[in-house]
Design a protein around this nucleic acid. Structure first.
Lengths: 236, 236
DNA sequence: GACAAACGCGAATAATTAGTCGCATTTTTT
DNA sequence: AAAAAATGCGACTAATTATTCGCGTTTGTC
């Protein structure tokens, strides 16, 4: 039985483009009519809900479409591929994190023992609050972490965050070496992230207790490097 | 060479069993001939190498077979499914971890300030060494963490490890409440794990530095709960 | 109200990949 | 040296799922 094969080679779809290219994740089309804006929201909402329900397994395009009360075709009007949907959700978080740290860096530098501890505390509070405010996005972040295609993109943001932690450390103590600041930044981020994630999976009381643990650990980690009273480097 | 060919225990084909059931991950058949034992090793080696090469993306059955110089069919002679292969590798690690903590618990309980710090140090050293010795298995562990089908099994081991950390804490300070011990166990495990993983991805020098950070954090975390000199509960 | 653009649809396509099965080959047993 | 058992093979099946494309419908514009 033969089927008349329709020629479709003229389409020259960008099959040559590497998958990870930034453009491949850009929205395919801007919504022109009002109804379509709502459609985009519906898609994102559906993807968020399904990711929360299914845990690590990322939802299929069909599932997302159905949950949003749409067809697959409609989804692809606004998103070039499935990953772009998740990434759209994740960026809200990934972009917010650097801002919070950057804001802390712009604050005046402490110069006494007391204000140093206060600075750590402020950074701790701000980042902690960020996790609480975005608790519903965490399943998406975890899904992205476990997705080979999206992991590299998250890594970029992570590097950015690490660099900002390091910059913050050097903001508090300008004499801190780059290499040390970077290492401490990595540890602060990883420890903070993993503890907040497990904390959020429990009740609020447990979260708060684990947060205290994080602060304890952060302080113990950075005190030897930041406490200007202990290791007198002298000048400002 | 004669091998008692004990007829195999009745092998009812449990096709109805749920996927995640333990039996579904049991080797399908014991190798009877010498050549096939080597085949099993070849399969495991190939899976390990491919997992290391490909990072988070688990290798396909075809890729494993080819790398081992075999056909897919041969792989399925000894493994019921793909996941069983990775799990076989992972169990070497997952089973070794609890043993190390358990060994520390069987040691005599410290009763002075000095031996308390020594106990933390010993546990730290032992677990740290475990990561170093099994560095080549870490990609498999990470792959399993990111695999929706295998994650639950790893979680079981994690719970076990957390319970053992908690038991160790109560071994050092029997007055510690269960709930607190459990929480500290979670934090110790998560912090230790994530820091060791990032440490192993760098050179040995960086690993050692991060290890020191872990010890610092662990100590700061548990001192308030374990240091019998500070919070005199008095009697043993 | 007519026309075009935007939108929505979903069957069809295409790619991937886990797992099977009958048969060929090798090893062990009798 | 058969016969039997174990092993090895790889084309084939089956299931999943991302993405496309032509067509019907709705919306905005004049």
């Amino acid at each position: 039985m033969m089927r008349a094969p329709r020629e479709r080679e003229d389409h020259s779809v960008n099959r040559s483009l590497n998958w990870k290219t930034r453009t491949a994740l850009t929205p395919r089309k801007q919504p022109r009519q009002e109804r379509s804006s709502k459609v985009v929201d519906r898609i994102l909402d559906a993807a968020l809900i399904l990711t929360r329900e299914q845990g690590t397994k990322t939802p299929t395009t069909l599932a997302i479409a159905q949950r949003a009360g749409l067809s697959v075709g409609s989804v692809y009007q606004y998103f070039p591929n499935k990953e772009a949907i998740l990434l759209d959700l994740a960026r809200r978080w990934l972009a917010a994190f650097p801002e919070v740290i950057a804001r802390r860096i712009n604050a005046p530098r402490p110069n006494s023992h007391e204000t140093f501890q206060q600075e750590v505390d402020k950074l701790f509070i701000d980042t902690s609050r960020l996790y609480l405010d975005n608790a519903n996005l965490m399943p998406v972040i975890e899904a992205i972490t476990g997705n080979p295609d999206l992991r590299p993109i998250q890594n970029e943001y992570d590097d950015q965050i690490i660099a900002l932690y390091a910059a913050w450390l050097q903001h508090v103590n300008p004499a801190l070496e780059d290499q040390v600041a970077s290492r401490l930044g990595v540890v602060m981020m990883e420890v903070g992230h993993v503890c907040r994630l497990v904390g959020l999976k429990r009740d609020r009381k447990a979260f708060d207790l684990i947060q205290d643990d994080v602060k304890t650990m952060w302080l113990a980690l950075v005190i030897p490097y930041l406490d200007l009273d202990q290791n007198k480097e002298g000048f400002s």
